[in-house]
Design a protein around this nucleic acid. Structure first.
Length: 567
DNA sequence: GCCGTTTTCGGCCCGACTGTTTTCAGTCG
């Protein structure tokens, strides 16, 4: 609604207010929790603390939350008579063109627009034309197809393949994938390639003629965009070598982070763009070769890409308060893996051997436990004991410590699907919800906190149960969950499987602020999945985690001591 | 409408591409 208000105000050429509403909209959109949850706990005061939310917008949000309606918005919309949300979703259409179409042709919604374009009335309007009309029709189809976001872990192989192809061009000195891919967001809307070359036109010709390209969205001397057959959009941008730092900084985003940086530059009499940091007066070059020197000239410590979301990292960088982020190299083992004992593809030994190959010192085998589980071949107590014996034998033979684990189901009444006695033989108890996802928030919260409080659970696996693009997270009061985990010393899992990434970044950050600690895992069901650890690390870094916040960065004897505390 | 190392008024990020027009507005990221 805030975005729509921005559009309606922009249409009326109201100065500056649209930007304020857009900023507020982005702030609300990126909240780690529902606005209603924030408001019910902290009231209007909590809203006012958010960046870009002042007295007036806070009041409007309050009205919306209390009554479900916003009179200011209703009045604006009624006054214009336009379905601004629908029309703004059409690529190529902004407030100005929407107003033009309305004033000339009385277009109020997407249906009107389609009819006008099909009867070739759009191209008659001065300022528009044949190409605009065609783009509108294509744009309407795209809206119908829906906005698709691609899962980071699944898009990475293609991204690296294309990167390699561009890198092998003679005229290309460097190529980097920037954007949300570099910030390691769980999903990416598009890919952003930054290319250093002194023959930009050659590069542009190459990228638009790649075999995967379905559609060339834009092609210029230094900047092009294509859409692939699967709908993925890729933006390409060519710059010169001495602009690499500023270009990488600019192209990595986020938009919000960059806006703050540019405003900071302005306040120091400087201006920042992809070409470098310059003085406003005289346009004298100040920095641009590396990202580090740009941050430094702005009075900031270097900010890792994963943190660049304007969610407190700039303030921290001013005060020297940035976290020392965990690295993949800090991870000494995997704490959730499945084998052919339940629904995995490989044996315990195969998984262990792969872990040895990754340089790990330990691996937890956590096949599904609890006979009643709606999962194929979950281990009952008898098979769990047999599996333990096999692990004992392998531990004698292999140069890695294999932990006897289980991923045990939390039942609907807040109990575990394995008996306390069965758990006594387990080194690492991972508990999770696998059924009843539609329960109310109160029921689900009680179910999980009851289990955490009454059983020796070491870690809560994939705490929100989501599957990206497939299944929404179940409703649960995360604050209460975090509190229960902190009180009992239960670790929260960051499940790095590309479809899970659960906990996710903003929740991790909130949990850390709560005082919680974490485990990282891959949820591997195949030995090749053990490589997913980098995605768990990505989420952890985006959640501001340091190595010391994560159990599996410690050596195995320290871990076993920690696990023994919860017995 | 928001905000403060320009601090309670007076500013508000920056540049490429497109399409249409001939110098630029609109859109996008």
């Amino acid at each position: 609604m805030l975005f729509a208000i921005a559009g309606l105000l922009e249409m009326q050429e109201v100065p500056f207010k649209p930007k304020a509403y857009e900023k507020a909209a982005r702030t609300m959109e990126s909240l780690p929790q529902e606005a209603s949850a924030l408001y019910s706990k902290g009231g209007k005061k909590a809203l006012l603390e958010l960046p870009g939310i002042g007295e007036n917008i806070a009041k409007k949000i309050e009205e919306l939350l209390q009554t479900g309606k916003l009179k200011y918005y209703e009045d604006l919309k009624k006054g214009s008579g336009i379905d601004i949300e629908g029309l703004m979703a059409v690529p190529g259409l902004g407030p100005k063109r929407i107003r033009l179409l309305h004033d000339r042709l009385g277009i109020k919604n997407v249906d009107d627009l389609r009819n006008a374009a099909l009867s070739h009335k759009v191209k008659e309007i001065p300022g528009l034309g044949d190409a605009v009309e065609k783009n509108i029709l294509r744009g309407i189809e795209l809206v119908k197809g829906g906005e698709k976001r691609f899962i980071l872990g699944y898009i990475e192989p293609l991204a690296q393949e294309i990167k390699g192809r561009i890198a092998s061009l003679k005229s290309v000195k460097k190529v980097e994938i920037a954007g949300s891919f570099r910030r390691r967001k769980e999903t990416v809307g598009d890919l952003d390639f930054l290319i250093i070359s002194d023959k930009p036109e050659e590069v542009m010709d190459f990228v638009v003629s790649m075999p995967e390209v379905e559609d060339v969205v834009a092609k210029g001397k230094t900047k092009s965009a294509v859409r692939l057959k699967d709908g993925l959009q890729i933006d390409f941008r060519v710059l010169a070598d001495d602009e690499f730092g500023s270009a990488l900084q600019y192209f990595s985003g986020s938009k919000e982070h960059n806006i703050v940086l540019r405003r900071m530059a302005n306040s120091k009499g400087l201006t920042l763009s992809e070409y470098g940091l310059f003085t406003i007066k005289g346009k004298r070059w100040v920095a641009g070769k590396s990202e580090k020197e740009i941050y430094s000239k702005l009075g900031l410590d270097y900010i890792e890409p994963e943190l660049r979301e304007d969610s407190g990292e700039i303030e921290a960088a001013q005060k020297g308060g940035l976290p020392d982020l965990v690295d993949l190299a800090d991870i000494k083992g995997d704490l959730q893996t499945q084998t052919s004992w339940s629904d995995g593809n490989h044996t315990i030994e195969e998984m262990a051997q792969t872990a040895i190959g990754l340089g790990y010192g330990f691996i937890a085998i956590t096949d599904h436990g609890g006979g009643a589980l709606p999962i194929a071949r979950a281990l009952d107590e008898k098979r769990l004991l047999e599996q333990g014996k096999e692990i004992d034998r392998l531990n004698d033979r292999l140069d890695i410590r294999i932990l006897k684990g289980t991923e045990v189901d939390i039942t609907k009444d807040g109990k575990l699907a394995l008996s306390r006695k069965a758990l006594e033989n387990i080194d690492f108890v991972l508990a999770a919800v696998h059924s009843g996802f539609k329960s109310s928030e109160a029921e689900m919260t009680k179910r999980i906190t009851d289990a955490i409080e009454s059983y020796p659970i070491h870690a809560l696996a994939h705490p929100t149960g989501r599957l990206i693009n497939k299944r929404e997270p179940y409703a649960v009061d995360l604050e209460k969950l975090f509190e229960a985990c902190k009180e009992t010393g239960t670790f929260l899992e960051v499940d790095g499987h590309p479809e899970r990434m659960d906990l996710k970044d903003v929740h991790i950050k909130a949990a850390k602020e709560h005082g919680c600690r974490f485990t990282l895992s891959t949820d591997a069901h195949d030995r090749s999945h053990l490589a997913y650890m980098k995605y768990g690390v990505a989420m952890a870094r985006r959640g501001w985690l340091e190595a010391k916040d994560i159990l599996n960065t410690y050596p195995i004897d320290r871990i076993e001591k920690e696990l023994a505390k919860r017995r």
